[in-house]
Every structure is written in C-alpha cells, then in structure tokens.
C-alpha cells in the first residue's frame, strides 16, 4: 500500500471529520446548556440533507446556497421543538427525556421513509468530480468546500458565544442556571435559542454532507450514534472537543475502511468511545464535572 493513498485517505478523513464535528457541535452545545441529550440529532441531520436535496432537485439550488433557507428553517424548528416539546421535560429524569426524543426520532425517520421511500437520494454538481492537486496528494473539491463551510459555521458559532450579548447570556445559563435566573435572564427563551442554534449546526452540516454521501432515511440513527461518539470522545459540552472528536472519528473511520473493511469502521469508533469513557470520562477536552 502506497503512502500517497494513506495520506489521501487521512486528508479525506480530516475533511469529513470537520463536517462531523459541526454536527456534533450542535449536540454538544444543546447538552452543554439545556442539559438534554438530543437523541433525535442524526434524524434532524437527515431531514436537513433531504431538504437540501429537494431544493437542489426543484430549483437547481447549489447546496451551499440551499443551506441558508434550510438553516433559517431549522433554527425556527429547533426553537419551537425546545419551547413547545422539550421544555416541560428539562426537570424530568434522564430516561424520560430520552424516551421523548426517541419518539421524536422515530416519527422523523419514518416520516422521511413515508415521503421519500427507502431509496438513496443525492445531488450532482460539477465540482464533485474535480479535485485540487498538490503533488501526489488530491483534495476533492466538494470535500474541501464542505469542510470549509463547516469551519466557517464553527467560527461563527465561536464568535457568537464569545462576543454577542445573547451568546454570553447563554453561557451564563450553562454555568449557573440559578444564578442566571436570579440575574433576570429568561432561561426558557435562552434554552429555545440554544436549541435553535444547535439545529443550525445540524442544518449546515447536513447541507455539506449531501456533497459527500447519498442520503437515506436509515442514516438518521447512524448519525445520532456517531454524534454521541464524537462528543463523548471530545468532551460533552466542550466546543473545541466536538471538532477534535469529529476529526478523530473521521480519520479513524477512513483508516479502518482502508486497512480492515468498510463494515468495521464504526467498530473502531465505538472502541474509541469505550476507551475514552473509561480512561477519561469527561472526554479529551472536557472539564471534570
């Protein structure tokens, strides 16, 4: 096996991993603030992918343009989901929250199946076949753009939490729920905003992902599990951790696919998850609870 191939596979893994990272970032932000694990995360991701595919099919809209209306719609959807459905559950036990979001996930994945059927859908844009060359190393253009979009969205999210007043208020909420309420913050609204923001991450990641894979309804549960693995490895609630986790999983999937068998790739991810949970349960970049 040539080194060129390995390097190419690793680079593809890193680029895909950045998109994974953005998806997981949504989960991490929601958990970090609302303290609810979104068990419908991957299903939301597939809905975003279908939305992008539909906009492309109907209007010939490039996925990178389609992502704007999809993200806006997802923000509203996430906001409504938290404000309407999840809010009464934030004080309930974990298994109760899990069941709620699981029911949401079951409805989502099967609604997609009902509407679109089980067959794979995709978008076809001309740059999917092109690549940048750097000596023997090839960068798929679509993959580079997808990773670029993920990095851009991540940077915007970091800036939002660091510099905007709302972002700071949300962080205050995450650090100290009671303190935030005493300070007069409208915690319910901030939670809904957070869920909306997490949903934007999913929308952008979904829009980027359709350039890399064909979408089927069955991808939903797979992405949910993947997002969990990533945030646990990176550190639940840690934003840089989600990105690092995404890259690690992206690369480990790519390498396992190359050296062992494509079907064994998620075994590596779960193995990594078990190791991290045991040796560093707060995740690689997480703070000790």
């Amino acid at each position: 096996m040539s080194w060129d191939l390995v390097v190419n596979v690793v680079i593809a893994g890193v680029l895909t991993g950045l998109v994974y990272g953005l998806m997981a970032l949504g989960l991490s932000v929601i958990f970090g603030v609302v303290r609810v694990v979104n068990f419908a995360h991957g299903e939301m991701m597939t809905i975003a992918m279908y939305a992008t595919v539909m906009l492309f099919a109907a209007l010939k809209l490039d996925p990178f343009l389609a992502v704007l209306p999809v993200a806006a719609a997802f923000f509203a959807f996430g906001y409504a989901l938290q404000a309407g459905l999840i809010n009464p559950f934030i004080t309930r036990p974990e298994h109760s929250q899990f069941m709620l979001l699981l029911a949401v996930a079951i409805v989502m994945v099967n609604a997609l199946l009902t509407v679109f059927g089980p067959d794979a859908r995709n978008v076809q844009v001309d740059y999917q076949l092109e690549s940048f060359e750097l000596g023997p190393i090839l960068f798929d253009r679509a993959r580079v753009y997808a990773a670029g979009a993920a990095v851009l969205a991540t940077a915007a999210l970091f800036a939002f939490f660091r510099f905007s007043l709302t972002g700071k208020a949300i962080r205050a909420c995450a650090d100290n729920y009671l303190g935030a309420r005493v300070a007069g913050l409208d915690v319910k609204r901030l939670y809904a905003l957070t869920f909306g923001i997490g949903s934007i991450c999913v929308a952008v990641a979904g829009g980027a992902m359709v350039l890399l894979v064909d979408v089927t309804p069955a991808l939903g549960p797979y992405y949910t599990l993947l997002a969990f693995v990533i945030v646990i490895v990176g550190g639940l609630g840690s934003m840089p951790g989600a990105l690092l986790g995404g890259i690690l999983i992206g690369v480990s999937e790519a390498l396992a696919g190359l050296f062992i068998a494509p079907s064994a790739k998620s075994m590596f991810s779960f193995g990594l998850l078990i190791l991290v949970l045991l040796l560093r349960p707060q995740g690689l970049l997480g703070k000790r609870p």
Binding site: A103, I106, V107, L112, P118
Partner: peptide, 11 residues
Amino acid sequence: IPGIKQVLYGL
C-alpha cells in the same frame, strides 16, 4: 406506505 405505521406509533 412504508414508514407510516411507525410514524403513527411514534406519535
């Protein structure tokens, strides 16, 4: 239609 049963079940 495939899926519709599970949608109702989920609801």
